[in-house]
């Protein structure tokens, strides 16, 4: 127990709304990248909305769908897709990178016998699985 000492006046510094951009006068790359990662979800969400809309159009017949596909060929839409793809890649990459954090302290969550699997293997495994899954999905799409 800590005696409630006679507290004195303190000063609490306000947190700037742009803390992730300029951290007390200094650019903090890691805060920025973090916010970027949070931002990826916005693009992923937008893409999902678009995708659902596309499926919805399929129910309206092939013409409606084809017209929609055609409209996607414009510059801005292509740009949107590229950005969304990059964000999705970045998100997956960092998310899977976190899996290493289960491992490092010696006490890994994934063990073989008493030995902890090295974190790098976990990361490589995750990335590998990701790439394999992507290839399978791409194959299914392109061949079906």
């Amino acid at each position: 127990m800590m005696l409630d000492s006679e507290t004195t006046k303190t000063y609490t510094r306000p947190i700037s709304k742009a803390w992730w951009l300029r951290d007390r006068g200094h650019f903090n790359r890691r805060y920025f990248m973090f916010l970027l990662r949070e931002l990826t979800s916005v693009f992923v969400a937008l893409y999902v909305v678009l995708f659902i809309y596309e499926i919805f159009l399929l129910t309206k017949g092939p013409d409606a769908h084809a017209a929609f596909r055609e409209s996607l060929n414009s510059g801005p839409w292509i740009a949107f897709h590229i950005i969304a793809l990059l964000f999705a890649l970045y998100h997956s990459y960092t998310w899977l990178g976190l899996t290493t954090k289960m491992q490092a302290a010696g006490r890994g969550l994934v063990k073989i016998g008493t030995k902890t699997l090295p974190p790098i293997l976990i990361a490589l495994g995750s990335y590998g699985a990701w790439i394999v899954a992507t290839i399978i999905i791409a194959y299914l799409f392109l061949t079906l």
Binding site: N28, R30, Y31, F34, E38, L98, K101, M102, A104, A105, R107, L109
Partner: peptide, 22 residues
């Protein structure tokens, strides 16, 4: 929300982010 900055600044390499993630 996994900013991860705690582990970067930790002078003793405690890696608290890892504790949280685990």
């Amino acid at each position: 929300t996994y900013v991860g900055e705690c582990s970067v600044v930790c002078p003793k390499h405690v890696d608290p982010a890892e504790a949280i993630q685990q």
